[in-house]
């Protein structure tokens, strides 16, 4: 006899010793919280939004700018370039909130396995775009902001003058921008690693499963 046919018979025979839950036990389960990973992916994205928005709000509190005049800060914030960047950023945020919401709605346990995995991978892709959007935004805006700040902070202006007096203006800019780029680089690297860690763990196995299904379907 075919081995699997034999196994099938045994499998069906084993049905008798499966555990039996009562009506009440099952009923109780309906009220327990789901621990599904997809839900967590969505929650983490929401937490991220809140986190970045909080960061933006904190950075708007004048007391966090030690050594700067509120007036100067105000002046900086009214520059056209800063406004444009902010508008782009908030528009981007809105688009991503919408996309995340769509993905969340789309993920539905009654699809076929393949469709479900595809949707989960789509969520993953959206998250990736979101990460890159954030990285680029933070990179570019920090660069612009710091440039403006160098040229308006009393200490750096003084330093700049000293260097210029000694005929070393280029040295000043090289040091300043070297420092800025280095700091921004580290900051971005940390953010990137952080994302890799969270979503990498959550989605690694799902990706493997999707690859497996794709192989079957070739």
């Amino acid at each position: 006899m075919d081995e699997l046919e034999f196994l099938k018979k045994d499998w069906q025979r084993k049905e008798k010793e499966l555990p039996k839950l009562s009506y009440d036990q099952i009923h109780q389960m309906l009220w327990k919280k789901s621990s599904s990973q997809v839900k967590w992916i969505f929650y983490i994205s929401i937490i991220e939004f809140v986190f970045w928005i909080a960061m933006v709000l904190i950075s708007n509190i004048p007391s966090s700018y030690n050594g700067y005049d509120v007036e100067i800060i105000e002046e900086i914030y009214h520059r056209v370039i800063i406004r444009v960047i902010n508008i782009i950023y908030y528009a981007g945020l809105l688009v991503f909130i919408y996309l995340f919401f769509l993905n969340y709605k789309r993920i539905c346990s009654i699809d076929s396995v393949k469709t479900l995995l595809k949707n989960i991978l789509r969520t993953r892709k959206t998250v990736n775009y979101y990460v890159w959007f954030n990285l680029v935004y933070f990179g570019v805006s920090s660069l612009i902001l710091l440039t403006i700040l160098i040229n308006s902070h009393a200490d750096t202006i003084q330093l700049h003058e000293q260097f210029t007096k000694n005929g070393q203006e280029t040295v000043f800019y090289v040091i300043m921008y070297g420092l800025i780029i280095f700091l921004i680089g580290i900051f971005l690297l940390i953010i990137w690693l952080f994302y890799k860690l969270i979503y990498g763990i959550l989605l690694k196995k799902l990706k493997d499963n999707y690859q497996e299904l794709k192989k079957i379907d070739l």
């Binding site: 699997l4 196994l7 099938k8 499998w11 069906q12 699809d111 076929s112 396995v113 497996e212 299904l213």
Partner: peptide, 25 residues
């Protein structure tokens, strides 16, 4: 996981039409 699902449906005596719909292949 995927192969396991296939075998499971097979052991449960589902036909291939059913299996293919469930897995989306």
């Amino acid at each position: 996981d995927i192969d396991k699902a296939l075998v499971f449906l097979y052991l449960e005596d589902r036909d291939y039409k059913d299996i293919s719909e469930t897995l989306g292949i």
